[in-house]
Write a protein that binds this DNA or RNA. Structure first.
Lengths: 146, 146
DNA sequence: GAAGAATTGCAACTGTGTCACAACTGCAAC
DNA sequence: GTTGCAGTTGTGACACAGTTGCAATTCTTC
């Protein structure tokens, strides 16, 4: 997922208000971190990163779920029992989104291009499977850990 | 995953010893439950099911991980922060295994036929993706929850 | 049957995620 | 600029899945 430009403070505030969320300091901090992240980030990572600024663990958690509920972020669990968050890409917002690849070894999570995984109708498969799938996740060894 | 016949006590003992595991009562009970299960089972479900027999939660946990480590079972996390276990199918042991479908709504986990999900080499996708994938998971609404 | 190693039961612990509630604050209306 | 108040925050406590240490027990081998 590519971020073309670093958003200004005003950009972030506008984004939040457009989603009916108040532009509070901790919320802006959380949103900014998501903008800066190149891969999905966990609650814990973000809480730790923001702790020096005085923002509480629970506040970070709540803001992440707020952003998710409002559709600005996407939440996923990549199999290591930790929720990870990333900004919702506008272009993907109304599609199935892209598949994720999670490394069993290093835990690294990366985004795969849309279309790199195909769901096929097959005998034995449940009806209308493809239409019902919302997210796709692959696990294995990443290129560095092979 | 289809179990053609219910294994006898001796079958189970033999299976365990073949994997260098002692055939203890709780371990046999765990293995039998996995044989009887039609979908992946969680630690907690199994521990609860076996509690009346007097087997301890930690013992069930340890046995599940033992079976997994020895290759008899397969462990997966389907996005609800719970490990689920199922028997490792011989035929799948050295392949990617079958994909799983997890319902966002009711949390139900079901097994999909192998081949119902295809990984395609595509521009933008990482090299040798297909070879590196160990497990595949789809999430969405199940047939009952649509 | 005895010895030794693997396994068990218990209880305490870790870490992620949630919640209730009182105090605070952004922001829209005046 | 001030005010009112719904939305938000910090705190502390909690639920839950999963893990660990250790003494007691049990399986396997000889």
């Amino acid at each position: 997922m590519v971020r073309l430009s670093r958003p200004t403070l005003d950009d972030l505030k506008t984004q939040l208000r457009a989603s009916n969320l108040r532009a509070t300091a901790p919320r802006i901090a959380v949103l900014r971190c998501l903008h800066e992240a190149t891969t999905p980030v966990s609650h814990a990572e973000l809480a730790e990163k923001l702790a020096p600024d005085g923002w509480d663990r629970a506040t970070v958690y709540r803001n992440l779920t707020d952003l998710t509920d409002s559709g600005m972020a996407r939440r996923s669990d990549h199999g290591d029992h930790v929720w990870r968050f990333e900004l919702q890409n506008e272009a993907e917002a109304h599609s199935d989104g892209h598949p994720h690849f999670v490394c069993d070894e290093c835990g690294d999570v990366s985004c795969l291009p849309e279309g790199s995984v195909e769901i096929r109708s097959q005998k034995g498969a449940p009806a209308r499977l493809k239409e019902r799938v919302a997210t796709i996740q692959l696990k294995g060894r990443c290129e560095r850990c092979v």
